[in-house]
Amino acid sequence: MRKSPLLLFAVAMVALPVLLGLGADWLAPYDPVGQDIVARLRGPMVGHWLGTDQLGRDVLSRILYGSRASLLVSAASVGLALLAGGTLGLLAAYYRGWTERLVMRAMDILFAFPVMLLAIGVVAVLGPGAATAAVAIAVVYTPIFARLLRGPALVICDSDFVAGARAAGATDARILLVHVLPNLAGVMLVQTSLLLSSAILVEASLSFLGLGTQPPNPSLGLMLAEGRNVLMLSPWAALFAGAAILLLAFGLNLLGDALRDRLDPRLRGPG
C-alpha cells in the first residue's frame, strides 16, 4: 500500500476538531452561556481570542461547545441511520422477493423528499431541539444507507461462500452478521464519513432556521443565525461560526473521499 498524504491530512482534519470539541470542558476559556454585556460584539483580542457575540459571550468557548454539539448530533443521527438503513438494506438483499420490494419502495418514499424539506417536516412534527434534529436527520439518511448497502449485499448473498454457510446450517442472523456484514465495511465506512459531513451541514441549517439546538445552548448554526443580524456591527461571531461549520464538514467529507480512493481499487487508475 502506498502512503496517502491526502488520507493522513484528512484524518488530521477530523481528529483536530473532534479533540477540541471533546475537550471543550477543559479548553474553553469561558462559560459558553455566560454573558458580559459590557464587553459585547468585540473583535478578536487578548482574552477573547475570537471576540464576543451580541450578548457578550465568548465566541471561542461557544464554538468549542458548539462543535461538540454538532458532532454529537451528527454522530447520533448517522449512527441511527446506519443501524436502521443498514438492517433494512441487508434484509431486503437477503430475503429478496416481497420483503425486498416493500422495503425498497418504502425507502423510495422517504428518498423522494428533498433532504431539508423532510428534515424540517420531521422537526415540525416532533418539536425543535437537538435530539429531535438528530432523529430527523436519521430519518432522512436511512434510505440512503438502505439503498447503498442493498446492491453490494445482493452480490455477496449470491456468492458461493454464503451458499456454503447456508448449507453448513448457519442461521440467517449468523450469515448476515458474520459473512455478509464484514464485507460491506468499506462501503459503510466511506458513506458514514460522507454523511457525517453533510449531517453537520443539515444540523447547522436546522439550527439556523431555529429548529435545532435551542438557545442559550451554543450551536454553530444558531451562532450564524444570531450573528447575521449584527453582521455590519461585528461580523466575527457569524464569520467564525461559519468557518467552524465549514471546517468540520470539510474534514469529514475529505476523509470519506480519501477512504473511497483507498478502498476502491478501480479508482487507482494507471500510474
Binding site: 491526502l6 459531513s197 453533510s198 453537520i200 451541514l201 447547522a204 441549517s205 439556523f208 450564524l224 447575521r228 453582521l231 455590519m232 461580523p235 457569524a238 461559519g242 461549520i245 465549514l246 464538514a249 470539510f250 467529507n253 475529505l254 473521499d257 500510474g271
Partner: peptide, 29 residues
Amino acid sequence: GRAADVAMRLASVAGLTIPSFWLGIVLIL
C-alpha cells in the same frame, strides 16, 4: 495525483461543504 489535482479536490470538497446560507450573505456583503 499531482499537486494541482489535490488542490482541485480540496476545493471541490470545500465547495460541497460550504454552508450556502452563509456563502449567500457573505457574497451579498
